[in-house]
Nucleic acid binder design. Structure first.
Length: 549
DNA sequence: TCATAGGGCGCC
DNA sequence: AAAGGGCGCCCTATGA
């Protein structure tokens, strides 16, 4: 593998190769990269941050096979309990710690002033390689760093190609539900009518239904002693104001989150473009920036329509996190329950609980740390039948309560906890009841809360690693299926934790479906070897995203 | 006018 | 006795 480090120097790129260092003008860089990519030696491009390099290459029609994203790898190594932090220490370290990804830059230009310019990528790369080589977990960590970097490429490519989006279909959908688009600053007709009905029903002519405080006063004035104004609370109430209020809530949410303003801001030339942010969540999950890409309501998915002659291949993993938990804890009983397509049904079939609903709520409680209610009642039975799986999350919770760092399967470390531990462990010493530190009860509550976080961290984070491996392998397979530029081949257009959407020429759809399944099997082997835990997929070939599932 | 906090709700 | 993870983003209200 030929590693080539790219460094920005004003308007040039400095190219560090084993054979020597050369300068390439920014304008010539795409051609240079394309030539090396096409050459006989596989290349791993090493750069400070994918969001600072790759969009411009993609805009020039250049796709690369692999990279090392020093910013993302730095973040992982800095938190990893199995890395000697001394090997990463340098004058640059704080700068790497603080480096943020960029969005919305003009891909044709380097930004004028960038904190990344004060960093030394070749030196950082050497430190990271040394830290990796000395780690007792170097195999798993190396896999994680490669997968994280590959995810950075996927994220940039998804922004580049965009998710096909039909503004005309979206507009029609809005008009059917809300009435025609109103002038700026006015409510759509349907919302205005519902607001009127609500004011009449509550006897509150001046009510602004968008103000929770105003609404709470009006509800109480009408003799309805509600604790808050959440829809779930309001649904419990039998009162003529509730139907219009709940309908108002639902439609108002659609208008503000994914209405005409959203269309204006985020949809251009038939594509929805926002930014995915790999590593944006401490657990390793992705975040997103712009347009709420990670919470696209089912309600507007009918507007996501594949191009003429193309299809979407939509795939998701059923019950990813319990399956990951079975694999990472080597719990053969839970893996057996996961053998079929429905893990919850498998738990019922094993005689652990009576119904699928109980199995689901019990498992979710184990992952999130619920101990009371229906979920808590399932825990003893789950613990008895699945001691390794439940034991793993319980131990993660206890470690978090003690203030310790926990890690995912591939070695991503949890953050160190904050102020609640400054006075020592929960079960030791005095707990001074001063104003600054809060009461003993407050700190115990915080510790349990942190335990729920670390409990979930190990599973959510390892699931994110499975998904990264799935994504990286799928990206490679998709590239091999087509010809031409990225947007002419089957390509990823959406990813959300355990779900992918691929945009593909129709005649390749079944091959894409097979690639998605093979990539999932490959991810399972990468993380869990020959341990027998399945990751069955639901795969649909559809014209509209809304038709999947 | 701007930044921030909290309510609320969409996704997993 | 109490005990439900992770996000982004809209709105209003508040205070500088």
């Amino acid at each position: 593998m030929n590693r080539i480090v790219l460094v920005r120097r004003g308007e040039d790129a400095e190219v560090h190769e084993p054979a020597g260092t050369v300068r390439v003008p920014a304008a010539d860089l795409p051609a240079f990269v394309a030539e090396r990519e096409a050459g006989p030696d596989p290349v791993r491009w090493v750069w400070d941050d994918t969001t600072r390099w790759y969009p411009a290459l993609l805009a020039s029609g250049v796709r690369i096979a692999r990279c090392t994203d020093l910013r993302l790898c730095h973040a992982i190594l800095r938190r990893s309990p199995s890395v000697d932090q001394g090997l990463l220490a340098a004058a640059d370290t704080a700068g790497w710690d603080a480096l943020q990804p960029v969005t919305a830059v003009d891909p044709g230009l380097f930004p004028l002033e960038d904190p990344a310019d004060r960093l030394d990528p070749p030196a950082e790369h050497e430190r990271q390689q040394a830290a990796l080589a000395e780690s007792a977990e170097r195999g798993r960590l190396a896999l994680l760093l490669a997968a994280e970097s590959s995810g950075a490429l996927v994220a940039a490519e998804m922004t580049h190609t965009g998710l096909p989006w039909r503004a005309d279909v979206h507009d029609r959908l809005l008009a059917e539900l809300l009435g025609p688009r109103p002038p700026a600053g006015q409510r759509p007709a349907v919302l205005e009518r519902l607001a009127g009905e609500l004011r009449t029903a509550l006897g509150a002519p001046g009510l602004n239904p968008d103000s929770p405080a105003d609404l709470l006063r009006a509800l109480r004035g009408a003799g309805l002693p509600v604790p808050d104004t959440r829809s779930w609370t309001l649904e419990q109430i039998d009162h003529p104001a509730m139907p219009p209020l709940l309908e108002y809530r639902k439609l108002s949410r659609l208008l503000t989150a994914n209405g005409w303003a959203w269309l204006d801001a985020w949809v251009r030339e038939g594509r929805f473009r926002s930014w995915f942010v790999p590593g944006g969540v401490v657990t390793g999950r992705w975040a997103s920036n712009g347009g709420g890409a990670l919470s696209m309501p089912v309600q507007v998915r009918p507007a996501a329509i594949a191009d003429e002659g193309w299809r979407f291949v939509v795939a998701d993993v059923a019950q990813l996190e319990p399956r990951v938990l079975a694999g990472m804890s080597r719990d053969t009983a839970m893996a057996a329950a996961a053998r079929g397509t429905d893990l919850y049904q498998g738990i019922v079939a094993a005689g652990v609980v009576a119904t699928r609903a109980e199995a689901k709520v019990g498992m979710l409680g184990a992952l999130y740390g619920a101990t009371r209610g229906e979920s808590g009642r399932m825990m003893p039975r789950l613990t008895q039948r699945y001691p390794h799986a439940i034991g793993l999350v319980e131990e993660a919770a206890r470690a978090g309560e003690r203030g310790e760092v926990v890690r995912t399967l591939l070695g991503r470390g949890s953050p160190v906890p904050g102020a609640a531990w400054s006075d020592g462990p929960a079960d030791l010493g005095e707990a001074p009841d001063d104003e600054d530190g809060g009461s003993r009860q407050d700190r115990d509550r915080q510790r349990r809360s942190w335990g729920r976080f670390t409990r979930n961290f190990v599973v959510q984070g390892t699931a994110a690693e499975w998904a990264l491996c799935w994504l990286a392998d799928l990206r490679n397979r998709l590239w091999e299926l087509g010809e031409g530029e990225l947007h002419e081949r089957p390509h990823l257009v959406f990813f959300l934790h355990d779900e992918v959407v691929v945009h593909t020429p129709g005649h390749l759809a079944s091959e894409v479906g097979e690639a998605v399944r093979q990539a999932a099997a490959s991810a399972g082997r990468l993380l869990f070897g020959e341990f027998p835990v399945d990751f069955p997929l639901d795969v649909d070939v559809v014209r509209s995203w809304a038709d999947a599932g």
